[in-house]
Computed example of a mutant assay.
Amino acid sequence: MNTIYQQSSFCSTGGCVQVAVLADGTVSLRDSKNLTIPAHTYTAEEWVAFTAGVKNGEFDLVPGGLLAG
């Protein structure tokens, strides 16, 4: 069975991350620019927590976000 990766429709550069849900329910994340690098895998719970943080603005590159200077 081939793993089907998806990337965001907001990716305009071609250099984006790609995501797939694996048969065991884990989430696989890979770099579309270099497919020879092994993908990172996360449990469903880890992925839900991360995406909830993204939706909540916790990783925004603006004042108040985690990555803000």
Rank of each mutant, 00 (worst) to 15 (best):
Y42I: 02
D31E: 07
A39P: 04
A23I: 04
T26E: 08
G15I: 00
F50R: 04
L67W: 14
V62P: 01
T26A: 12
T36F: 10
S9P: 00
P38I: 07
D24F: 09
G25I: 02
S28A: 14
G14I: 04
V21N: 00
E58M: 15
G57P: 12
A20C: 04
N56G: 13
V19I: 15
A23R: 09
G64L: 14
A20Y: 05
G15V: 00
V21H: 00
P63E: 11
T41Q: 15
S28I: 02
A20T: 05
T26L: 06
V27I: 15
H40L: 15
C16Q: 03
V21Y: 00
A39V: 02
S28Q: 02
P63R: 08
S12Q: 06
L61K: 10
T26V: 04
T51D: 07
G14P: 04
V54N: 09
G65W: 08
G53P: 08
V54M: 13
L22I: 05
L67R: 07
D60M: 10
F10G: 00
P38N: 09
E46S: 11
D24E: 10
T51S: 12
T43D: 10
G57C: 13
T13G: 10
S28F: 02
N56W: 05
G14D: 07
V48Y: 11
N56P: 01
L67V: 09
G14E: 08
G65V: 07
T51R: 12
D31L: 04
C16A: 04
L35Q: 12
I37F: 03
C16R: 00
L66P: 00
A44V: 02
T13P: 03
T43Y: 12
N56E: 14
A44L: 07
V62M: 12
F10L: 06
A39K: 07
T51H: 04
E45A: 15
S32R: 01
N34P: 03
K33G: 09
D60P: 02
A39S: 12
Q18W: 00
A23K: 12
G64V: 13
A20D: 06
L29A: 01
L61V: 06
Q18R: 08
S28T: 02
S12T: 06
Y42W: 10
Q18V: 00
G57H: 12
A23G: 06
N34Q: 13
E58S: 15
V19S: 05
